[in-house]
Amino acid sequence: MSKPKVAFFDFTSCEGCQLSKLNLEDDLLDILELVDIVNFREAISDRGEDYEIAFIEGSLSTPHCIERIHKIRRQAKILVALGACAHIGGINAIRNKMDQDEVRETVYGKDKYLFPSIKAQAVSDVVKVDYYVPGCPMDNQEFKKVLSALLTGKIPEIPEYSVCVECKAKENECLYDYGIACMGPITRAGCGAACPSNGHYCYGCRGLVPDLNKNAAKDVMEKYKLSMSQIKKRFYMFNTNYVNMEEKEYE
């Protein structure tokens, strides 16, 4: 049987996020043996290579990105978003809550008009995404699980419950016991509660749980004396595109 052809594409993501690592990590070599990598990283030619599985890294933030992603989607049988930027817009999306013109000015100075930029979007905001490997950075083991599921014809599954579930199973002390507001209760699990297990609050890099109760989150953070602007920061760090803190709505 021929190896499935796989391509990796890099969009707007924070420097050196995953793929550089993916290149080198020993524990990924065995699984990467099972595929034929036809396109990697910057080697973006628009020659319309033939590949079946496209892994997308980074968020979409220029008109050119949009054009490219449509092209990739047309070719790929399976499209997988890798990492927080591709999954939920990630850190890049923080700027979406700011004035777009201001952003360009800050970044490009008076050359801002030479660089058309749009709101940083998750891949799924533009095209259909089949599967995700969430996280910032994404977890190599999870990437491996997703890829091996795809290679064996399975639907890769990522947890639909909260980080607290994994945190409790490890019997960590809850950071709220120390007055530290943590995004764990509303963040999708799968990282093994990586941050709380190391004494740091979860900042929500794996995206929100499917049925977010935003008001609960706000109430709790308020209780822990976070000001509204701090609460917004916690939410907006990774999940800007999914919460609008100006609204108050009860389900």
Binding site: S162, V165, N213, N215, A217, D219, V220
Partner: peptide
């Protein structure tokens, strides 16, 4: 009660 609940699952696990 549901209005305040995250459905985080902590109460079940512990």
């Amino acid at each position: 009660t549901a209005r305040k609940c995250y459905s985080c699952g902590t109460c079940n696990l512990v």
